[in-house]
Amino acid sequence: MELIVNGTAETVPIRTIAELVAYKGLASGALIVELNQRIVKQEQWPQTRLQAGDRLELLSFVGGG
């Protein structure tokens, strides 16, 4: 399925947000996921199915002033 992840088109063998996070090998603790400009809470990642063309932002807080 082709998704736009952090602004880049990617073809990934996944169906849900949880699978995407696992596929990318990301630690979920600090991760914030935005799907089509809506935040999806971590407990909803396993049941949130993705569709081709979905835009995802994988974000986290970092040091800043």
Binding site: N6, K24, L26, A27, G29, A30, E57, L59, S60, V62
Partner: peptide
């Protein structure tokens, strides 16, 4: 704090 896209190369 600031908000950024995750950087897979950087530590998490």
């Amino acid at each position: 704090v600031a908000l950024r896209r995750i950087d897979p190369q950087a530590g998490q």
